[in-house]
Amino acid sequence: MSRDRTLPGLAVATLVLLGVAAAAPGWMVFTLVVSLAQGLVVLGLMVLWRAGLMSFGQSLYYAVGGYTVGLINIQFGLSNALLLVLAAPAVAGLLAFLLGFLLARYRDIFFSMLTLAFAMILYGVLVKSSTLGSTDGFSILTPSFLGPHPGPDATQRLLTGLAALIALLAAALVHRYLKSTAGHLATAIRDNEIRVEYLGYSVHRAIHVKYVLAGILAGAGGAIVAMAIGHIDPEMAYWTTAGEFVFVAILAGAGSVAAPFLGAILFVVLRTYAAQYTPHLWHMVLGGTLLLFIVFLPDGVWSLFERACRPLKRRAPS
């Protein structure tokens, strides 16, 4: 059995990302922070996906994360980024915990559609909340860090650095979880639930845990993106947002905890270039490229890496 190189790889990647956050041009830093936020949400989807479940409503927790930041801004005037990226996933996780009792009973398309319905209901409620700006949304306070305000450019870079560290932490924890017995159960649940139950494990509880985990990660992603953009609106909860996450999840592949982040970076960069250089045809460029990826790399972009690593593995035992 080849050894697991994920953790050292993640550490190196984080160092590179921190370097980008510190020194790259502004637009690239922004692209990175948006990708990392999206990557966090997709990481949660990956955990569910390994158990054969796909949420079409992860935008629910993404929006809850964003609006938690906004409401803490308004209610308490607090803008500390560290505090906010802890509070948002906590709220999202709590909601996921509650809804999880219901959703853990559902499978396949019914799981997907029920998650979608919940997201759309939140969207409807937010649109009707005119004190929260309805569809226009409202501005988020510039995030602050410990110490004096460092100016807008440095704020964006610090936030990106923070996002990179959170991504590292999340990826490492999820990696550990996936390597644990509970994590390995995912494939078993996907293949045959009843056998898992005969083994004495509660499928219900395993799915509940995964769902909460995904909710927490989406909440963190929503909080980061809210602070990076400086604005939140109900569209965060809309089905198109959720659809994008699913898309990135499939684009990335479920091979490694690093895959969601790689997929998100690829997706955001692609979207950026399509929007800038084919302004009248960016849907087509985006759709076409993604189609090529799905058809020719059905196991996701990550499978390219795995393929590249395979000769290494074969050589390793010698």
Binding site: F30, I229, I232, E235, R271
Partner: peptide
């Protein structure tokens, strides 16, 4: 989305 609008 607003993310895209700001990104662009």
């Amino acid at each position: 989305s607003t993310t895209q609008v700001v990104e662009n």
